[in-house]
Amino acid sequence: MISRTLLAPHWQGFKRSLVTYTRIPLKVDWSDDIKHTPSVCFLPWVGVLVALLSAWPLWLEWSTSIQALFMLLTAVLITGGFHEDGLMDACDGLVGGFEPDQRLSIMKDSRIGSYAALAIWFSLTIKWLLLSELLTLAPESFLSFIYVLSAWCFIHAFGRFFPLILMHLLEYVSLGNSKSANMLSKLSLPLWALALAPCVLFGVMAFNLMDLLFVFCFSTLLIFAIRAYLHNKIKGFNGDTLGASEQVGEAFLIFCVLVSYS
């Protein structure tokens, strides 16, 4: 009974995270009086679930390019293109605008500009090519299947850890009311550990220790580079830039796995 009471806030937070960041149909009571863990700290765990559900092509004897295509497509369908939409809006605003307020205003525009179209094409193409190459390198064995599945889970979990770090390195900025503001929350040390747990777990399963340390180090450099870029462009972050950072993180981590496995 005690353990159930302790886990109840985590379960409520996880359900809220699932409903927020995916299209998985769940009934959630959004009442403020229900005790719940902040939903953002479960974002990496949601990534694990997305990875597991989108890994079904690995069980089929298809060409690696077709497997990679349907893995990416399934992930997009599960999330509803949540992060991809952020990438497109962010690229339109950050590249197309000339001052912070103008860039934020462009991001709120629902229309797709040329920078958004270019960004999503290159993002999906790069991920498809890298993932196809990764699957081609993997030998046909059950152990190799476990490694690839673990790597796919790591990519989706740690890619979603990027926005959490940026949330704590930058100030939130927006023009007017924003639905993203309600999703943001400062995390305590135990909640940081909860969010990082799946990244470490699947990272250990997917890499040797030295490669994993290199991935964490280079990821840190990338995150600080993104942080510097966003501070220069809009003096902070918003929901669109967080989604963009997740997409950049995914592509970068697929590249890291490919380098490690090759």
Score class of each variant (00 low, 15 high):
residue 195 A to K: 10
residue 178 S to V: 08
residue 251 A to V: 02
residue 98 F to M: 06
residue 200 V to I: 14
residue 135 L to G: 01
residue 53 L to W: 12
residue 36 H to F: 00
residue 223 I to T: 14
residue 117 A to R: 08
residue 11 W to I: 11
residue 2 I to R: 13
residue 139 P to G: 06
residue 96 G to C: 06
residue 139 P to M: 07
residue 110 S to G: 14
residue 231 H to V: 02
residue 181 A to Q: 14
residue 83 H to V: 03
residue 140 E to V: 02
residue 104 L to S: 04
residue 195 A to E: 13
residue 158 F to A: 13
residue 97 G to K: 07
residue 248 V to P: 11
residue 32 D to M: 15
residue 19 V to Y: 13
residue 48 V to K: 04
residue 48 V to N: 02
residue 256 C to F: 13
residue 105 S to M: 10
residue 257 V to I: 03
residue 164 L to S: 09
residue 22 T to C: 10
residue 80 G to T: 05
residue 96 G to T: 07
residue 203 G to I: 09
residue 204 V to C: 03
residue 232 N to F: 12
residue 195 A to G: 12
residue 108 K to L: 14
residue 236 G to E: 12
residue 168 H to T: 02
residue 91 C to R: 08
residue 236 G to R: 13
residue 185 S to I: 09
residue 58 L to F: 15
residue 63 S to K: 07
residue 22 T to Y: 12
residue 171 E to A: 07
residue 125 T to Q: 13
residue 136 T to A: 13
residue 21 Y to M: 09
residue 234 I to M: 10
residue 230 L to K: 10
residue 250 E to K: 14
residue 18 L to C: 12
residue 60 L to Y: 15
residue 136 T to C: 10
residue 247 Q to N: 12
residue 114 S to C: 14
residue 20 T to D: 00
residue 60 L to T: 14
residue 129 L to Q: 13
residue 41 C to T: 02
residue 20 T to E: 05
residue 44 P to F: 06
residue 6 L to W: 01
residue 197 A to Q: 15
residue 171 E to M: 04
residue 38 P to L: 01
residue 98 F to H: 13
residue 220 T to Q: 07
residue 67 Q to V: 07
residue 54 S to A: 15
residue 169 L to I: 04
residue 192 W to T: 01
residue 138 A to Q: 10
residue 201 L to H: 08
residue 242 L to G: 04
residue 146 I to R: 06
residue 237 F to Y: 12
residue 13 G to L: 03
residue 83 H to I: 03
residue 202 F to I: 06
residue 98 F to P: 00
residue 160 R to Y: 15
residue 163 P to D: 01
residue 118 L to A: 15
residue 87 L to F: 05
residue 34 I to D: 03
residue 81 G to V: 02
residue 139 P to Q: 06
residue 221 L to D: 10
residue 140 E to Q: 11
residue 64 T to E: 05
residue 124 L to W: 07
residue 188 S to I: 10
residue 97 G to P: 09
residue 168 H to D: 01
residue 226 I to W: 00
residue 152 W to K: 06
residue 115 Y to A: 03
residue 49 L to V: 14
residue 90 A to K: 02
residue 15 K to W: 01
residue 112 I to M: 14
residue 178 S to D: 13
residue 231 H to K: 08
residue 16 R to Q: 08
residue 4 R to H: 08
residue 77 L to V: 06
residue 74 T to D: 11
residue 87 L to G: 06
residue 54 S to P: 07
residue 72 L to M: 11
residue 219 S to Y: 00
residue 208 N to L: 00
residue 230 L to S: 09
residue 44 P to S: 04
residue 156 H to S: 11
residue 124 L to S: 04
residue 207 F to A: 05
residue 106 I to N: 04
residue 183 M to I: 15
residue 2 I to C: 06
residue 72 L to A: 05
residue 174 S to L: 04
residue 99 E to Q: 04
residue 107 M to T: 15
residue 125 T to E: 09
